[in-house]
Simulated scan of single mutants.
Amino acid sequence: MRIIAGNYKGTTLYAPMGKETRPTLDRARQTLFDILLHAPWAGKAFIESAIVLDAFAGTGALGLEALSRGAQKAYFFEKNIQTRQVLEKNIQLCRANSISILYKDVIMPPLSNCFCNLIFFDPPYHHKLIPIALEQLQKNQWISADALIVTETAVDEEIQLNPSFSLINERKIGAAHLKFWKNSNMIE
């Protein structure tokens, strides 16, 4: 598993042992960032000005890929202790310590005022954690009004965010189903 493009391009990331963490495959990450780069509701300038929140971060591949492509800062949430240690090593490997902040549990986030505008949700499949985490992040002021939310679920997994978010794009890649969501009031 490598960083695909940008400043950290080609960096091979560490992965935790065992089956608890399921990193987003390079192919799915490439597709995700190609969509972001070329979509009228995102684009290169959006990625380069993004404040990223990588919920259920695992190896940190999504947040680190965004940082590699110019995002300003990334907040990573990872609850598993061993996986968090691997994530810390990946942040150091990419020399992204000064623009990365690591937290433990996205289901119980601290109160914030950073207002992230690019949010990645890639939790364990079939656990219905995304709506719960999103509600807590909104309640604790992590998500900007104009945030773009990217979810990765299993292809056979249904997901519905609260009514304030509308699905604007989706793509199936192997076993993964990527969905892109925007605040309904912010869709142009």
Results as ranks from 00 to 15, higher is better:
A61H: 07
L62V: 09
G63C: 08
E65M: 11
A66K: 02
L67Y: 00
S68I: 02
S68N: 02
S68R: 02
R69M: 10
G70F: 07
G70T: 10
A71R: 02
K73L: 15
K73A: 08
K73D: 05
K73T: 14
A74G: 08
A74K: 09
F76Y: 10
N80V: 07
I81P: 03
I81R: 12
Q82A: 15
T83S: 12
R84H: 04
V86S: 04
E88T: 11
E88V: 15
E88A: 12
K89Q: 15
K89L: 07
I91V: 15
Q92M: 14
C94V: 08
C94A: 07
C94E: 03
C94K: 00
R95P: 06
R95K: 14
S100D: 02
S100F: 05
S100C: 12
L102Q: 05
L102I: 08
Y103Q: 06
K104Y: 11
D105A: 06
D105Q: 05
V106I: 08
M108A: 14
P109W: 09
P109Y: 08
P110Y: 10
P110C: 09
S112A: 14
N113S: 15
N113E: 13
C114S: 12
C116W: 01
N117P: 08
N117D: 13
I119T: 13
I119D: 11
D122K: 01
P123A: 03
P124A: 09
H127E: 15
K128W: 14
K128T: 13
I130R: 01
I132H: 03
I132C: 04
A133F: 06
A133I: 07
L134D: 11
K139L: 12
K139E: 11
N140S: 10
Q141A: 09
W142A: 04
A145M: 13
D146A: 01
D146R: 04
D146W: 05
D146T: 08
A147I: 01
A147Y: 01
L148S: 01
I149H: 00
E152C: 00
T153G: 06
A154K: 03
E157G: 08
E158L: 03
Q160L: 15
Q160V: 14
N162M: 12
N162I: 09
P163A: 11
S164D: 12
F165E: 05
L167R: 05
E170M: 14
R171Y: 04
R171F: 03
K172G: 13
K172N: 15
I173R: 13
G174E: 04
A175Q: 10
H177N: 14
H177M: 11
H177Q: 13
L178S: 00
L178C: 02
K179I: 02
K179W: 00
K179S: 06
W181F: 02
S184Y: 10
N185R: 11
M186S: 07
I187Q: 06
E188P: 10
E188N: 09
E188Q: 05
E188A: 04
